[in-house]
Simulated assay, not measured.
Amino acid sequence: MYYTIKQFAKMFHTTEHTIRYYTDINLLPCQRDGGNRRIFDEESINWMQGITCLKGCGASIEDIKEYCNLCRLPEEKENLIARYQIILRSRKQAYKRVEEARKTAKYMDEKVKHYEDILAGAAPDDTNPRSWTAENRPQHH
């Protein structure tokens, strides 16, 4: 089965521009139809799933390019080790993002509780940035 760029972008919750960029920099393989329009097949889906996963971990475009290039090389131990190193770096970045998300969620839990206290009349409304000073400005940790 073949997919248009519009279908493919929708499938991966991204933009057509992003898909074009990935094909232009040789991350994502595609074919062309009779009108020279990009079309995508099951192999394209496989590549895009890998790209999406690495991107979601916080891998740089350079790392994703390197990973894709290594995947296109012969299956040799050296190439496997190089891909493994990229995966290790990406996993480390993923865990860092998880920790940052936990901290942000905790901060937002505190904000929700603060707003609930204000709405219940248990605390004054100090949430508007227009009324903050250097002394009473909330700090994000």
Results as ranks from 00 to 15, higher is better:
Cys53Arg: 10
Ala82Met: 06
Glu62Asp: 14
Thr23Arg: 02
Ile45His: 05
Tyr84Gly: 04
Thr127Ala: 11
Thr14Trp: 04
Gln49His: 15
Leu80Cys: 12
Leu73Thr: 03
Ile51Phe: 04
Lys106Ser: 12
His114Pro: 00
Cys57Gln: 01
Ala105Phe: 07
Thr14Ile: 06
Arg20Asp: 09
Asp125Arg: 08
Gln49Tyr: 09
Gln93Leu: 13
Ser90Ile: 03
Tyr115His: 06
Leu28Phe: 02
Lys77Asp: 11
Met108Asp: 00
Gln31Glu: 15
Met108Phe: 14
Arg97Ile: 00
Ile39Cys: 05
Gln49Pro: 00
Ala123Asp: 04
Phe40Asp: 05
Ile19Gly: 07
Gln49Trp: 08
Thr4Asp: 03
Glu66Tyr: 04
Lys111Cys: 14
Pro124Phe: 10
Cys57Phe: 07
Lys96Val: 00
Asn26Asp: 15
Ala123His: 10
Ile39Tyr: 06
Gly58His: 00
Ile118His: 08
Asp24Leu: 06
Arg97Asp: 00
Tyr21Val: 06
Lys106Met: 10
Asp41Gln: 07
Asp24Glu: 15
Gln7Phe: 01
Cys68Ala: 13
Ser44Phe: 07
Ile39Met: 11
Leu54Asn: 04
Glu110Asp: 14
Thr18Gln: 13
Glu66Gly: 03
Glu76Tyr: 07
Leu27Gln: 07
Ala120Trp: 09
Glu42Trp: 02
Leu88Gly: 00
Val112Met: 12
Glu43Arg: 11
Asn128Pro: 06
Asp109Gln: 14
Gln7Glu: 15
Phe8Asn: 03
Cys53Thr: 08
Leu80Trp: 12
Ile19Arg: 08
Ser90Asp: 01
Met48Leu: 13
Asn36Lys: 14
Asp33Met: 12
Arg89Lys: 15
Ile61Asp: 05
Arg32Phe: 12
Leu88Val: 15
Asp126Trp: 01
Gly50Thr: 09
Ile51Met: 04
Val112His: 02
Lys103Glu: 13
Ile86Gln: 01
Asp33Lys: 12
Asn36Thr: 05
Lys103Thr: 10
Glu43Ala: 12
Thr15Arg: 08
Asn69Lys: 05
Glu116Met: 11
Asp109Asn: 14
